[in-house]
């Protein structure tokens, strides 16, 4: 699980082009959207593709992302439970 979390952090930084952010800057329970990392709805769509491409999880409704992408913690838990690759 910890390895997955680390992997997620570095992938998010890479995919979302967060130039000024390092893996260490993101805590597992930090909010990814809003006040935390400050991601927005376009980022949510990018993360949906990340789930599909890297872990074989397909979301059809962007609203589902809201709960899944709350934090690295929630994301990792969802991936662990639902991954197909």
């Amino acid at each position: 699980m910890d390895a997955l979390k680390q992997e997620l952090k570095s992938k998010i930084i890479e995919v979302l082009n967060l130039e000024d952010v390092a893996v260490e800057d993101i805590n597992d329970n930090d909010a990814l959207f809003g006040d935390g990392l400050g991601l927005d709805s376009i980022d949510a769509l990018e993360l949906i593709v990340l789930l599909d491409k890297e872990y074989g999880i397909k979301l059809t409704d962007p609203k589902e992302g809201k709960t899944i992408f709350q934090s690295i913690e929630t994301m990792a838990a969802y991936i662990t439970a639902n991954r197909t690759k």
Binding site: I42, E46, V49
Partner: peptide
């Protein structure tokens, strides 16, 4: 496949 929206927008 696996397309993301940012560059489209």
């Amino acid at each position: 496949e696996f397309l993301t929206p940012t560059s489209f927008i």
